[in-house]
Design a protein around this nucleic acid. Structure first.
Lengths: 229, 229
DNA sequence: CAGCTACCGGATCAACGATCCGGTGCCCGA
DNA sequence: TCGGGCACCGGATCGTTGATCCGGTAGCTG
């Protein structure tokens, strides 16, 4: 009784904030995955009751939105004017992809409007870079969305597909394909179940194709004559 | 008592099968969305008890997997040899995208291994077409995954983003961007919040870029010399 | 008619998201 | 110095969910 008062405040650091909740949510998601994130468990990790969270946050979806935006802060925004727009965009997009893979749970959450400050800052960089490069309207939107969609799709595909994690499942899938190789000859032969490492190369190739397409449609600074260097 | 026996069997059609469950699950998902799919509600629509479903299906995830594969059957597999590989792949991929948009709930489910027969059949066509065209290995995987990822990303983005459905949210987002136009000048100016219709054009452009990139790397029929145009 | 198999569902369990309502401690003005 | 208000916390609880236990029933087979 006499020793207990304000014991929490002294040891447990700040009295619980939206930031602390977000931070711990990301940690929990990283550690246990998306489906194991519970308001109760999150509260437990924070040393509080589950109901307390609802004072700082309206719903569980808010927590997910916050967590999703939080990890985007890890995507480093390239310093402009360095190596040219291709290098800048490649750097941004690669960093983005790396974050998606570092937090595999995020891939499943991409299906929600991303309007957090960190997400918007990265989108701003992407748009600004394209605009400065001379990409104009029909192609501007196509380029921005094309790149984003490509990254999102790649991240979703790779983060979801258990290449390293659940090896038994991958093996079962391979066996299934091989067992039905009459029905799926091309798949069984050149199987889509790539081994680790090939993901990166495939991503780089696809990204290059998109950048080539964008480059071919630059209006103003046609430094290269329309095609590629 | 005397009139009741076998009343169900006579009227309710087949005694409940995995197919009927899948079919009704798709209908329920189409009608009410992903989060409203409940084993109980699904059972109710089928005129049975919720527990009965578990005789035909192991978990709810099974239902989702089945539903996801089911809608892929709607993607028409082009008749080969018609207009050339670009037309074939464009047709497949466009149909795929159309299905994703026709069943918006599917976008959120793409984050699970897709190994159903319908999905595999479409992947088989994609791989086979690329192989026959002469796309070889480093580019083969990149092409197949690049196209898939692009479609998935586009579908996820568009199906999720409430362009038509939740108009208030879209308006709020626009206002938010405009209010912070100092922080996000490019976004506010050339806003990424496209109006309906532009989605299709953007998708077609991006797809064309990917196809161009693939075409430039075809080995056998090197109609273009190897590097680029 | 006995028994087996495919099929069904009420009752129940643990866990979840969310809310109600009653607490604490602390600070600020009188 | 005190008292009222405010930011913050959490036990108890509600309705709903996915899943399981266990006891049924219909119809065929021998």
């Amino acid at each position: 009784m006499w020793l207990r008062p304000s014991a929490r405040r002294e040891r447990d650091a700040p009295p619980l904030s939206r930031d602390r909740i977000t931070e711990e949510a990301v940690a929990l998601l990283d550690a246990e995955g998306a489906d194991r994130l519970t308001m109760r468990r999150l509260a437990e990790r924070l040393g509080t009751g589950s109901t307390t969270l609802y004072w700082h946050v309206k719903t569980k979806d808010d927590v997910l939105d916050l967590a999703l935006d939080k990890i985007f802060a890890e995507v480093e925004i390239p310093r402009k004017g360095g190596q040219g727009w291709r290098a800048d965009i490649t750097a941004l997009v690669s960093g983005w992809r790396a974050v998606l893979l570092r937090h595999p749970w995020s891939a499943a959450l991409l299906g929600r409007p991303m309007l957090g400050p960190n997400v918007l800052a990265r989108s701003e960089f992407l748009y600004a870079t394209l605009v400065e490069t001379g990409v104009v309207e029909p192609h501007l939107t196509a380029a921005a969305y094309g790149l984003s969609n490509f990254v999102i799709g790649s991240g979703l595909m790779q983060a979801t597909w258990p290449d390293n994690a659940k090896q038994p499942m991958l093996r079962d899938a391979r066996e299934h394909l091989h067992a039905n190789r009459e029905r799926y000859p091309a798949l069984a032969a050149h199987g889509p179940l790539v081994a680790d490492g090939n993901w990166d190369a495939g991503f780089a190739l696809g990204l290059g194709w998109l950048l080539d397409g964008i480059q071919a449609n630059i209006a103003s600074t046609d430094e290269e004559g329309g095609a590629r260097a």
